[in-house]
């Protein structure tokens, strides 16, 4: 049979091209435009090459923000992924308890981000906040997130854990429920320990959802803005000035659009690269779990 050739297929993919162009490519190109030029007005633009990049990459403030960001995302992943798995393992599988646990888990996810920030800003205050009062009073620790950078860090981290661990837990819970009961029976007939069941059945079967959880939590924590902005405003000092807060300061605060565009591109490339690495590592680690 002869091969039929026509170009109709292009019309079918055209809508996707248009949508992606408007949602991603065109805005990105605009940013690229600003990153390589000094634009003072529509007719008043100068090609600056990689000058903005040189400027921002050698900027101490950016390097510090990037380091802070990496430490924060690492901490978020190290706490939220294991905690989410433990929570999912502990959630009841069926019955009224399961529904109650699901609703309880979903609650933090339903709260708007800036409200989460406001809640914690008040909650953690030493004078009027329940948590702040409890830590300073009954616990007898000296805690003040507005003055101490370590306290500010802990506050932001605990807030993020509270806000987003449920997402990891829910994803893992879905993964766990998809494991046929026969696997557990087979394991108990083999005489496998609880740890072996987790290591050789549950963990490999959760690989797919864990990959999604790690990617989502990484990308999300790496671009965190609203909550620390509301709680600490990046302070005390620059202690919680993460990359996006730093970027916003330059772009919206100082209106340095050129350097801001350069930072955006660097920022974007870092997320893209790290996500790519995570994805490939996780796809290869412990391969052999079902493709479902």
């Amino acid at each position: 049979m002869g091969k039929t050739e026509n170009n109709k297929a292009w019309f079918l993919v055209l809508p996707v091209f248009v949508i992606v162009a408007f949602s991603a490519i065109i805005p990105l190109i605009t940013v690229v435009n600003y990153a390589f030029q000094d634009i003072l007005g529509p007719q008043d633009r100068y090609w600056v090459g990689t000058e903005w990049f040189k400027e921002v990459l050698t900027d101490d403030a950016l390097q510090e923000a990037l380091l802070r960001q990496l430490v924060f995302s690492t901490a978020v992943l190290l706490v939220e992924i294991p905690l989410g798995i433990v929570l999912a393992l502990g959630m009841p599988a069926r019955g009224a308890g399961a529904s109650a646990a699901l609703v309880l888990m979903a609650l933090p996810l339903l709260i708007p981000w800036n409200v989460v920030g406001t809640i914690w800003q008040i909650f953690a205050r030493g004078d009027i906040g329940l948590a702040g009062w409890f830590i300073n009073g009954p616990l007898g620790l000296d805690y003040n997130y507005t003055a101490d950078s370590f306290d500010a860090w802990i506050t932001i981290l605990v807030m993020d854990v509270w806000h987003w661990t449920p997402l990891v837990a829910l994803l893992c819970y879905a993964g766990l429920r998809a494991i046929p009961d026969a696997y557990y029976q087979a394991a108990s007939i083999d005489g496998a320990s609880r740890w072996a069941v987790f290591r050789h059945i549950e963990l490999p079967k959760m690989r797919g959802v864990l990959l999604i959880a790690v990617l989502l939590r990484f990308m999300d924590s790496f671009t965190i803005y609203t909550e620390p902005f509301v709680v600490t405003g990046g302070g005390p000092g620059n202690a919680t000035t993460f990359l996006s807060i730093h970027l916003a300061k330059i772009a919206v605060g100082q209106f340095d659009l050129g350097p801001a565009a350069a930072i955006s591109i660097v920022y974007f490339l870092i997320i893209l690269t790290l996500s790519f690495v995570f994805y490939n590592v996780m796809i290869r680690v412990g391969t052999g779990s079902s493709k479902s």
């Binding site: 026969a182 029976q185 087979a186 007939i189 083999d190 050789h200 412990g286 391969t287 779990s289």
Partner: peptide, 28 residues
């Protein structure tokens, strides 16, 4: 002293065929 085979194909997903077959012996 029991062994069971199921309708679904139940093996440890992250272990090779060798390790799968060896698993009950290792536990013993």
């Amino acid at each position: 002293s029991v062994a069971m085979v199921y309708q679904q194909f139940i093996n440890y997903p992250s272990l090779t065929v060798y390790d799968n077959i060896a698993s009950p012996l290792r536990l013993a």
